[in-house]
Amino acid sequence: MPPRDRSRGRNVHIYDAKDRATVLGDLILTNGVTNTNFYSMVEIIILFTSDFELRDEGDTKIDRNDDPFQPGILYQCYRIEPWLVRTISHDTRTRVKSFCDAIRSRDRRCVISGKRAVGAYRDDWTGFEAAHIFPLAYESYWREYSYDRWITIRQELGGTINSVQNGMLLNSAIHQLFDSYNLSINSDVWIIYVCLAGKYLDQEFLDDPQRPVHQLLRWHFRQAVLANMRGAGEPRFEHDFPPGSDIVGDILYGPKSVERMEFELFNRLAAQVEIVLLKYTIKQEAAG
């Protein structure tokens, strides 16, 4: 089965004003997107060498203001920023336990839907998951580009990428949408896009001194824009594999096979490797 891309259902189409046969990007317009918001999205997927403006089909200028954005046509030169392949996270290793504990203690609800974890008092978190904003699988990228410079609350275990400032408690289904860039938060205005579009995060979340770092949420939002708007759209990866499925074949013969295999191996095998190493250590200590 060919992979699904993200272009289906888009109702805003972005063109070069000098070459309207070439689509630069598209968008599924949802509630809450203003003209100013849309300008900021376009600036993520297109690099302009000078000031620019957006115009609709009638060649009328779209002002950069807070009016609701309407479908239109657009403009000029661009450069694509790399998009980091990301699939549903399965990481359950012991090094993220302190991360999960800190996220649960701070949020005690899905911070996007607002639904409370009613079983939290008896340590029952069924249906709620601690989600990394910047994925754990890209920890080398995190270190290389010094993303930890924004972290002020450091965990004793797990490194800065496992700081409470790099995570949120989410409903399990919303976590999947967040990981696949089908949902994101524009932290410039603290509004949610795509699923639950137009919903603002609550004041309890915004007032919390331990809340996620603005710069990391902005990074995730940029990734979501790149994944969902540019070109024909990045692929959507299958993650629900019934028993007996050819997972490896799906990855190897699908799009972005190398990047996806690296991400999946990290998420699916890292926990098993840690268990094996732990057992080996225990045996060595017992033998010694």
Rank of each mutant, 00 (worst) to 15 (best):
Cys77His: 11
Cys77Glu: 14
Leu24Ile: 05
Lys115Cys: 00
Arg122Met: 14
Gln76Ala: 02
Arg95Ala: 09
Arg64Asp: 09
Pro82Phe: 12
Thr34Asn: 04
Thr49Glu: 07
Tyr39His: 07
Cys110Gln: 01
Asn35Met: 07
Phe38Gln: 00
Gly32Thr: 01
Ser98Asn: 14
Thr22Ile: 08
Ile46Pro: 00
Pro71Leu: 08
Asp101Ala: 14
Thr60Trp: 05
Ser50Gln: 13
Pro71Arg: 06
Gly32Cys: 06
Tyr39Val: 02
Gly25Leu: 01
Asn31Thr: 05
Ile28Thr: 11
Arg93Ile: 03
Thr94His: 13
Asn35Thr: 10
Val23Tyr: 03
Asp91Thr: 10
Gly58Lys: 15
Asp26Gln: 14
His90Trp: 12
Val85Gln: 09
Ser50Glu: 12
Ile112Tyr: 02
Asp124Lys: 04
Trp83Thr: 15
Asn65Asp: 15
Gly25Ser: 03
Arg95Glu: 14
Arg55Met: 10
Ile28His: 06
Gly58Phe: 08
Leu84Ala: 11
Ile44Phe: 05
Phe52Ile: 05
Arg95Pro: 02
Ala120Gln: 00
Ala102Tyr: 00
Cys110Lys: 02
Asn65Phe: 02
Phe69Ser: 01
Gln76Arg: 08
Thr94Ala: 13
Asp56Asn: 14
Ser113Trp: 00
Gln76Gly: 08
Thr94Phe: 13
Ile46Lys: 03
Ser98Arg: 15
Arg109Ala: 02
Ala120His: 00
Ser40Thr: 04
Asp51Ala: 03
Asn37Trp: 05
Ile73Ala: 07
Thr60Met: 11
Leu47Pro: 02
Gly72Tyr: 05
Leu84Arg: 04
Ala21Phe: 13
Thr94Ser: 15
Leu47His: 13
Lys97Glu: 10
Gln70Ile: 14
Asp56Tyr: 11
Thr126Asn: 08
Asn31Cys: 06
Glu53Trp: 15
Asp26Val: 00
Arg93Cys: 11
Arg64Pro: 03
Asn65Thr: 09
Thr94Gln: 15
Ile44Met: 06
Leu29Thr: 03
Leu54Lys: 07
Tyr75Val: 09
Asp56Arg: 08
Thr49Tyr: 04
Thr30Ser: 08
Ala102Leu: 11
Phe52Asn: 02
Lys97Gln: 11
Asp101His: 12
Ile112Arg: 01
Asn37Glu: 12
Val118Cys: 00
Trp125His: 01
Ala21Met: 14
Thr30His: 06
Asp101Cys: 10
His90Met: 12
Ile45Val: 10
Glu57Gln: 12
Phe48Arg: 05
Trp125Cys: 04
Leu74Gln: 02
Gly119Gln: 04
Asp123Trp: 04
Met41Phe: 06
Arg104Cys: 04
Ile44Gln: 06
Leu54Asn: 04
Asn35His: 09
Lys97Gly: 10
Ile45Ser: 05
Arg108Gln: 11
Arg20Pro: 05
Gly58Val: 09
Thr22Gln: 07
Val85Thr: 13
Ile73Gly: 01
Met41Asp: 03
Thr126Gly: 06
Asp51Glu: 12
Phe52Pro: 01
Val111Thr: 07
Arg106Gln: 06
Gln76Thr: 02
Thr87Tyr: 01
Gln70Arg: 13
Thr22Pro: 08
Arg86Thr: 04
Glu57Lys: 11
Arg79Thr: 11
Thr36Ala: 07
Asp67Thr: 04
Asp56Cys: 09
Phe99Cys: 10
Ile80Phe: 10
Leu74Arg: 00
Val111Ile: 11
